[in-house]
């Protein structure tokens, strides 16, 4: 594939794709898009967003269509991993320098876009993770979840030797190298922690930067409390196995 920009070159102005995975987010999606556009206006980079509608059953698609938003709509539900991966595929096909993931439910504030973009702009990292725990400001999640995240963080540290505090954060930015890797290899079920292990295996430089997250604005979380225990077991196994995956 031919590239419009030289991926290795750090230019002053980066082309950034903000990937917004959305599943049944009719109440949040417009606000999420507006705040991305607001944040983009204050940045010197060329920022575009792409909403990935994962076959929502509510009015999300209608809102996107009527508002003439930049979106793709998956014909069958793939789950968060497959949805986000389509965004990376789009970024790869359209030669973006950087791709940023931001959840469509309003938890991630695009105001902090510059924080996650900065290490990539300076070529200090290939993968940047926006972390709510580095400074400890803003919404910190429930105590039980924090314990779970701490445990997962420890497991990931053991299997691949990277110290990341907020392993489940879906607020992350990757450079061109990361885009082409994720477009072809992306964990499917609960992809955030697994992606860290795979990036560590690829010897990508991973950096965590502080951001402030909000409590979700509406809609339902993809992980209900009932499934939390199952989630923990599954992710732990997935993370350990990811360390043995051939990539």
């Amino acid at each position: 594939m031919f590239l419009k920009t030289d991926p290795g070159k750090v230019t002053e102005k980066m082309r950034v794709l903000v990937i917004v995975p959305a599943y049944n987010e009719q109440n949040n999606i417009t606000a999420a898009i507006n705040s991305i556009n607001n944040a983009a206006a204050s940045l010197k980079d060329e920022i575009e967003y792409l909403v990935v509608d994962d076959c929502s059953r509510d009015g999300t698609l209608g809102i996107l269509r009527e508002g003439k938003r930049n979106y793709i709509s998956l014909p069958v539900n793939l789950g968060i991993g497959g949805g986000v991966q389509s965004g990376y595929l789009y970024a790869l096909e359209n030669c973006f320098d950087v791709a940023v993931q931001i959840d469509g439910d309003g938890q991630h504030d695009p105001f902090y876009l510059d924080n996650v973009l900065d290490p990539i702009r300076k070529d200090e990292a290939d993968v940047v993770i926006g972390s709510r725990f580095l400074n400890g400001d803003g919404f910190q999640s429930s105590a039980l979840r924090r314990i779970g995240i701490k445990f997962l963080s420890g497991v990931i540290g053991c299997v691949c030797g990277v110290k990341i505090k907020d392993v489940t954060s879906g607020f992350r930015a990757v450079n061109h190298k990361g885009i082409s890797f994720f477009a072809h290899n992306y964990a499917q079920d609960y992809p955030e922690p697994e992606a860290i292990v795979m990036c560590a295996k690829k010897k990508f430089r991973i950096k965590e930067v502080p951001v402030i997250m909000k409590e979700r604005q509406g809609g339902e979380s993809s992980i209900s409390p009932m499934r939390s225990v199952y989630y923990m077991i599954k992710v732990t196994i997935a993370v350990v196995f990811a360390a043995f995956l051939r990539i």
């Binding site: 979106y71 793709i72 998956l74 014909p75 069958v76 793939l78 497959g82 595929l89 789009y90 499917q188």
Partner: peptide, 14 residues
């Protein structure tokens, strides 16, 4: 394979 097809269809639809 199904996943990749779905993704490509979505991109083409756009």
């Amino acid at each position: 394979r199904n996943r990749r097809l779905t993704q490509i269809i979505a991109l083409l639809e756009k």
